[in-house]
């Protein structure tokens, strides 16, 4: 683990611009343009018809339809709005695990997605969560705020344990407006991930989960006698590990991931799982292609 390792360098910044350009191409083929709201308002995009009621603005009556149908129908248009994207970055001690610490990887992912969001004139807010520190970047807008975002991400340090429910509870109370919540975490909460995610979902947030794991967590290369040390709690566990244990561990880990997949599918939560050995730009492109980041 290299805690002094910087998440952002000049190459990273170049990659951000490249990713933005690529993301525009991808969106052009799929959803055309900026984000649309479900609210009806004033814009040029026709949305629907409804019957005229007293007090409605005459300017929106579809006179052509009245001529054909002899019925007053009011044309409705989509209202355009800017999107709030909240990044929840897990900053617990477990995120320091791995040759490339998961936290570094998480910061890069968050930075990349934030840059793209800012470029799309969305509003970006970042919250780092663990049991000891809850640093927060207020919602920012505009591409020029990217350095503020990067500075904030750079200053996040891992400490404490993972408590998703507590962390999301604080987030909800500090966030009045609904938006897209991008959760970047290993989700290694001993109490489980469902309570926390349920809380976010309950608040009508759109949820996008980036599940970061290290290769050694999925396939530990341990055989023999060990004292396993939990990096979050420093708890010791004497174990003697053989091949059957490893196989069973892998089964348990897979079951955990399968449970998470099933949970997200049932609740229409976008989920992308990645290992730290996967280049982060490859992950970003994968996110864009699967379309979950922009709904």
């Amino acid at each position: 683990m290299n805690e002094t390792q910087s998440a952002f360098d000049s190459d990273f910044l170049k990659q951000l611009e490249y990713l933005y350009i690529v993301s525009k191409k991808i969106f052009a083929g799929r959803i055309k343009a900026e984000r649309r709201s479900t609210r009806r308002g004033v814009s040029v995009e026709f949305a629907d018809y409804r019957n005229y009621t007293a007090g409605d603005d005459f300017r929106y009556i579809d006179w052509n339809a009245f001529a054909r149908l002899d019925e007053l129908l009011l044309k409705l248009y989509e209202e355009r709005e800017d999107l709030h994207i909240y990044f929840l970055v897990d900053a617990s001690e477990s995120m320091t695990y791995g040759e490339l610490p998961k936290l570094i990887y998480a910061k890069r992912v968050a930075a990349a997605l934030a840059y793209i969001g800012l470029s799309n004139l969305d509003r970006i807010g970042i919250t780092a969560f663990n049991t000891t520190d809850k640093s927060r970047l207020p919602v920012e807008r505009g591409k020029g705020k990217i350095f503020t975002v990067l500075n904030f991400l750079d200053q996040i340090e891992a400490s404490g344990e993972t408590d998703l429910e507590q962390a999301f509870h604080n987030f909800i109370h500090m966030t009045k407006r609904r938006g897209l919540v991008v959760l970047i975490s290993d989700l290694f909460d001993p109490k489980g991930f469902t309570a926390g995610l349920n809380m976010l979902k309950f608040q009508k947030h759109d949820l996008f989960v980036v599940h970061i794991i290290d290769e050694k967590e999925a396939e530990p290369n341990l055989l023999g006698d060990y004292h396993l040390v939990d990096v979050e709690t420093n708890e010791l566990r004497p174990v003697t590990i053989n091949e059957s244990h490893i196989k069973r561990y892998q089964d348990l880990f897979k079951k955990y991931c399968d449970d998470l997949d099933r949970y997200c599918t049932q609740r229409e939560i976008s989920l992308v799982r990645t290992m730290t050995k996967t280049p982060f730009d490859e992950l970003i492109l994968r996110i864009f292609r699967m379309g979950g980041f922009v709904t």
Binding site: S94, M95, Y97, G98, K102, D186, F188, P190, D214, E217, P220, L222, G224, D225, Y226, H227, L228, V229, D230, V231, E232, T233, E235, R237, P238, V239, H245, R248, Y249, L252, F253, Y256
Partner: peptide, 22 residues
């Protein structure tokens, strides 16, 4: 007594579950 090696892990929850089963 056998001296065991110390090995840090990101979480013990899978190991606990594993050795709880066995």
């Amino acid at each position: 007594k056998l001296r065991r090696r110390r090995e840090p892990v990101s979480t013990l929850m899978f190991w606990e579950q594993l050795f709880k089963e066995r």
